[in-house]
Design a protein around this nucleic acid. Structure first.
Length: 289
DNA sequence: CGTAATCCCCGGCCGC
DNA sequence: TGCGGCCGGGGATTA
């Protein structure tokens, strides 16, 4: 499940492959077409497959950037527009000369969008569970949730934003884990990195945000940002379906102290898990208070 | 208008 | 081998 570090890795690989290239052709899978014909919003949002294709064909990809867990492809055609992609649970990009070059069958058989570039290669989007999204926008304002995202966690104003948001009344009674996973509070921190940051800080995931001192909140925010950076350096985490565009796995999962663990890596106590905001939250009942 | 709860998009995977 | 149930990011919808 790609979070900020995984998306960053993908963007760093897509950028040199895609930037400056022009899209010659676009393929959308029959699965997506059928799903949309049945009234579902499968991957391609708010637009039918043919409109999606005709808007993209002939566009030049002028830049590829990450914003939170989203990938922004800036396109130039008659006018500038954006292709905004979220990888959801299982989205993955491949830059290949042929779909047959995607060696892992479970990725190859779930390729749903293919951009044929003017260098003859393909940018293929695979999404096993189809929780990913693609939107064509004239700007962020066309999709208001983008405007509400917290600043990038490494931006100077991110800490102040975090404190301001986390101290709002609506968050004070909520479990701290739910608060740091809220994209309007911190960008890009999902279940994995929230779990790890709380473990490092020895904070119980269910502790009410309002019952954590400002000093501890500052430390917690810094722990989240540090772990995200560490993971970027390690090539991200590979949990189930994440691959980078070369089909490679990351290494950050080898450094987890808590996520997916049966025993605490610090004290050996059996870990516990509970549901917070609908997500499994693992913690050490001895270390985390 | 803001907030909270529920629904939904899916197939790999696990346990029986 | 078959099959039911679980899991989850986050927007949309409903209350």
């Amino acid at each position: 499940m790609p979070e900020l570090p995984e998306v960053e890795g993908v963007v760093r690989q897509i950028r040199p492959a895609a930037a400056g290239k022009t899209i010659r052709d676009v393929f959308v899978s029959d699965t997506i077409r059928l799903s949309k014909a049945n009234g579902k919003e499968a991957i391609i949002k708010k637009m039918d497959a043919d409109a999606f294709i005709s808007r993209l064909v002939g566009a030049e990809i002028s830049s590829v950037e990450r914003r939170s867990k989203y990938i922004y492809f800036t396109m130039q055609k008659e006018r500038e527009f954006l292709l905004v992609n979220h990888l959801g649970m299982s989205g993955a990009w491949f830059y290949v000369d042929s779909l047959l070059s995607i060696t892992e069958e479970k990725f190859r058989r779930h390729v749903h969008v293919v951009l044929t570039l003017d260098d003859g290669n393909l940018l293929a989007y695979s999404d096993i569970r189809r929780f990913g999204e693609m939107r064509l926008l004239n700007g962020e304002a066309d999709f208001p949730p983008l405007l509400l995202m917290a600043p990038e966690p490494f931006a100077e104003e991110a800490l102040e934003h975090f404190l301001h948001m986390a101290e709002r009344p609506k968050y004070s009674a909520k479990p701290i884990k739910e608060v740091i996973m809220d994209g309007q509070v911190i960008s890009g921190c999902g279940n994995i990195y929230a779990t790890e940051a709380l473990f490092r800080m020895k904070i119980h995931p269910n502790r009410a945000a309002g019952r954590i001192s400002r000093a501890r909140k500052i430390q917690l925010f810094k722990a989240v940002a540090a772990i995200l950076l560490e993971s970027i350096d390690a090539g991200g985490s590979t949990i189930s379906d994440y691959r980078n565009i070369n089909g490679e796995s990351g290494r950050m999962q080898d450094r987890f102290g808590m996520y997916g663990k049966k025993q605490c890596m610090e004290c050996g106590t059996a870990t516990k898990s509970l549901q917070i905001a609908g997500r499994t939250s693992v913690y050490c009942p001895t270390c985390q208070k």
